[in-house]
């Protein structure tokens, strides 16, 4: 039973990291219909920013909690700046181009960012410090859930709650939903659509950066290529849940995370990806629009 619960926690932890990244894919897709292939790289840049920031802060001798919070802020802000810039440089000039052009531009941006980080940071794995403190109260349960798992779950839950509040209740959130549903009408009501799109990239990038920090601290090492597989997995989760849908991305992430955890735990970690992608194929056969996605109906 302990083993089962341990796998559940492991799956939920993976799921929440996927969710933090998948939200960026799904929000951007929802608003401009683009698969932002450079999003995994933003997550990777978030992790590297965290590495640099935490190293500096540790040298300054700040307490562990302060280091964690300031590092998260630094990673979120810096990654958001990258997300904003990528949109301005690589996607906005192609807003009215055929749909394939921004897609190619996104792939190019992804390759560029990977190589840029590789040149700056080498292709070796760099050790990442453990930023998440060990909680004494968790010691009796150490067999099933670790401090890192719990922190990842708690931070993700908090961020998801904040995002939900932002989208549901604020003026900006309403403008984001309106723009996603009918961009031309949003323009006609005075919404600055360019700004709404920028905000979407900024929010998605900041979430991915926090995900990058949390998982890097959990695994203990990073290099320039970690964004690729994490990006593909999170994208899979977003498609699984129904791309464009925010609750769908979260649900898809947890389904994917749990599937991988059980596949690893009961079969073999060699089969982790086989199960993950088989699940994707199965779900798309029966629900082509994803778990919570809407089938595209043309209504006149």
């Amino acid at each position: 039973m302990d083993y089962f619960i341990e796998l559940v926690f492991s799956g939920l932890t993976r799921g929440s990291i996927y969710a933090l990244i998948a939200l960026g894919y799904t929000m951007v897709y929802g608003i401009i219909g683009l698969i932002n292939f450079a999003h995994g790289e933003i997550y990777m840049i978030g992790a590297f920013t965290a590495l640099i920031a935490s190293t500096v802060l540790n040298i300054l001798g700040l307490p562990l909690y302060a280091v964690l919070i300031l590092t998260a802020l630094a990673a979120a802000v810096w990654a958001a700046a990258y997300g904003y810039t990528v949109e301005r440089l690589a996607y906005r000039p192609l807003r009215n181009a055929p749909r394939l052009s921004p897609l190619i531009s996104a792939i190019g941006m992804s390759i560029f960012l990977q190589n840029y980080v590789m040149l700056a940071q080498t292709s070796d794995f760099q050790p990442f410090p453990a930023l998440i403190p060990e909680f004494a109260f968790l010691e009796p349960f150490a067999a099933v859930v670790g401090s890192t798992d719990l922190t990842i779950l708690a931070v993700s839950a908090l961020l998801l709650l904040l995002l939900t509040l932002l989208i549901k209740y604020t003026r900006t959130g309403k403008a984001m939903r309106a723009t996603a549903q009918d961009q031309k009408m949003a323009l006609l009501l005075g919404v600055n659509v360019d700004r709404v799109i920028s905000i979407t990239f900024v929010v998605g990038s900041a979430l991915a950066a926090v995900g990058g920090l949390l998982i890097a601290s959990h695994i203990g090492q990073i290099n320039f290529s970690i964004g690729f597989i994490a990006g593909i997995k999170a994208f899979t989760a977003a498609v699984l849940g129904g791309i464009g849908s925010i609750p769908g991305a979260v649900l898809g992430s947890f389904v994917l995370g749990l599937t991988e955890a059980f596949a690893t735990g009961y079969v073999s970690s060699d089969y982790e990806d086989v199960f993950a992608f088989s699940l994707l194929v199965l779900i798309l056969i029966f629900r082509p629009a994803g778990l919570l996605g809407k089938a595209a109906v043309e209504k006149v």
Partner: peptide, 19 residues
């Protein structure tokens, strides 16, 4: 008409007062 289909009636009205 271009009503925002997934926004409620009240939210659609809010969007009219966006500025």
């Amino acid at each position: 008409r271009h009503i925002f289909p997934d926004l409620t009636v009240a939210e659609n009205l809010d969007m009219g007062a966006f500025l």
